[in-house]
Nucleic acid binder design. Structure first.
Length: 479
DNA sequence: GTGTAGTTGGA
DNA sequence: CCAACTACA
């Protein structure tokens, strides 16, 4: 008989959890679980209060689920990763652990932490077992001829789909109930009384809620997804991102249920579905993060970014954060983010493009601000999205991408329903002026309690192109 | 095999 | 623009 410890981190679920499943492989083994909170580390990673609260309340739910299969979840509040290692080692000794199980995390601090844990525990005769779990396909299975991860989404997409068609992905069941439970008193219940800092109606707690959400999406939303996902006033997306980001549901389960739901369709339609593509984008950014550890160190994929002469005007930055730029679609998105900790994906592109290409502010400032607000903050995806929008990421194009807020707004929020929902000051502005209210107030000489545009779109666009081209030239000069 | 020229295409 | 393919020496 061995004693196994499952160390939960970003995988707060019992169904299809590789580490948990593996730890329960032998019925004679004793299994306990542990979660170590590291608030200081979260602070350094700009993790939002909403996400932390969401995580805590999902931990309560996880504790109940684990209890049903006679596994005790211990909780300890540490500070940083470095401190958490000390506690983990202490805990392993105290509980006389033989094997430690966990699922891999791919960010650099997380990897360093796990490296130290593995080294120290191995020296003391404790077996450490890590698993690929939050991704669909192990990183090494999708590589180019030079054994590097693909840098172009289209190629990665092609390869991974070929792989997924060939290799059947299975979900792991919930382990069967253990013989007996470790019954030490724990400090676990402290969150039961703590205030919920996110909107529970929009983001219900627990694994079951995530599965319901997925089923509901397949039932009512997926058929119109490719159109509706671009309209922020519609509830057209699956809104599963907060659940995926802390592993309340696995992307394997999303894929598996998606196939099951769609199995009457021809395979090409299934694999080309725009929703499935989003799952692959998530996958792509995770694979990229592993092959390019510099992404975790605030580096751009494009090296000439070092030569960018960012303006970083702090007044503009504040206006952007508070939704007071005078560009209604940008401001509505930014206010949605602040209010519920989630922003419609289309608006994430528009607002981030605007910060970088019209306010000329370093994309990293935006990246960090997003993290500090998002309930679904996921480093790989947030970073990938920001790099893509700022044109310093992987998908090179011979032109610079610009999102014109005015044109985008007319396209995705024609009648201004979304804008008015988040900017009530604009309630009296007629629909045909909702995308440029300052023109209406100038013309009609009426006062609208909403700022004029803080910058000129075309001027700043030209300015960005100048700075961008100059940076590229200077980079080439140096090489 | 492996190095290179030419082609393709891009949330 | 440039990754990643194909073709061919």
């Amino acid at each position: 008989m061995k004693k196994n410890l499952v160390w939960f981190r970003n995988d707060l679920r019992v169904y299809d959890n590789t580490a948990l499943y593996q730890s329960c492989k032998f019925y004679e083994d004793k299994v306990i679980a542990l979660f170590i909170d590291t608030p200081e580390q979260w602070k350094n990673h700009f993790i939002s209060q909403k996400k932390i609260s969401f995580m805590h309340h999902n931990l309560i739910s996880l504790e109940e689920k684990l209890s049903e299969i006679n596994i005790t979840l211990y909780y300890y509040q540490s500070t940083t990763f470095l401190q958490s290692i000390k506690y983990l080692i202490h805990f392993c000794h105290q509980k006389k652990i033989n094997n430690l199980f966990y699922n891999y995390q791919y960010e650099i601090n997380e990897r360093n932490r796990d490296y130290i844990v593995k080294k120290k525990l191995s020296e003391q005769g404790i077996l450490v077992k890590g698993f690929h779990d939050s991704i669909l396909v192990p990183i090494n299975d999708i590589k180019n001829k030079k054994k590097n991860s693909y840098k172009k989404f289209s190629i990665f997409n092609e390869k991974i789909k070929k792989y997924l068609k060939k290799n059947i992905i299975r979900c792991l069941p919930i382990p069967i109930k253990r013989k007996d439970k470790d019954n030490d008193a724990t400090s676990f219940f402290k969150f039961k009384k703590s205030i919920i800092k996110f909107n529970k109606k929009i983001f219900p707690i627990g694994e079951q809620a995530a599965v319901e959400r997925l089923k509901n999406f397949f039932k009512y939303k997926i058929n119109d997804y490719s159109f509706n996902r671009n309209i922020p006033s519609l509830d057209g997306t699956s809104m599963l991102s907060p659940y995926l980001s802390i592993g309340i549901i696995s992307s394997r389960r999303c894929f598996f249920m998606f196939l099951k739901n769609k199995n009457s369709n021809p395979p090409d339609t299934i694999y080309n579905s725009s929703w499935f593509n989003e799952i692959i984008w998530r996958e792509f950014y995770y694979h990229l993060l592993v092959s390019h550890p510099n992404l975790s160190k605030s580096k751009s994929m494009s090296e000439w970014e070092n030569f960018m002469n960012w303006e970083n005007n702090s007044n503009y930055f504040d206006a952007w954060k508070n939704g007071c730029t005078g560009f209604p679609i940008v401001d509505a998105g930014m206010r949605q983010l602040k209010e519920i900790g989630w922003m419609h994906p289309r608006l994430r592109m528009i607002t981030s493009s605007f910060l970088v290409k019209n306010l000329l502010i370093d994309w990293r400032k935006g990246e960090k601000y997003f993290m500090s607000q998002l309930i679904d903050g996921d480093f790989a995806i947030n970073n990938g999205g920001w790099q893509w929008c700022s044109s310093f990421g992987t998908d090179y194009v011979p032109y610079i991408r610009f999102f014109n807020p005015f044109l985008q707004s007319k396209k995705i929020d024609k009648s201004g329903n979304f804008i008015k929902n988040f900017i009530p000051e604009l309630n009296n502005v007629p629909n045909n002026f909702i995308h440029n209210p300052h023109e209406w107030s100038n013309k009609k000489k009426c006062f609208v309690n909403y700022p004029d545009p803080i910058v000129d779109y075309n001027d700043t666009k030209k300015k960005f192109m100048l700075i961008f081209n100059k940076a590229q030239l200077e980079f080439k000069k140096q090489v």
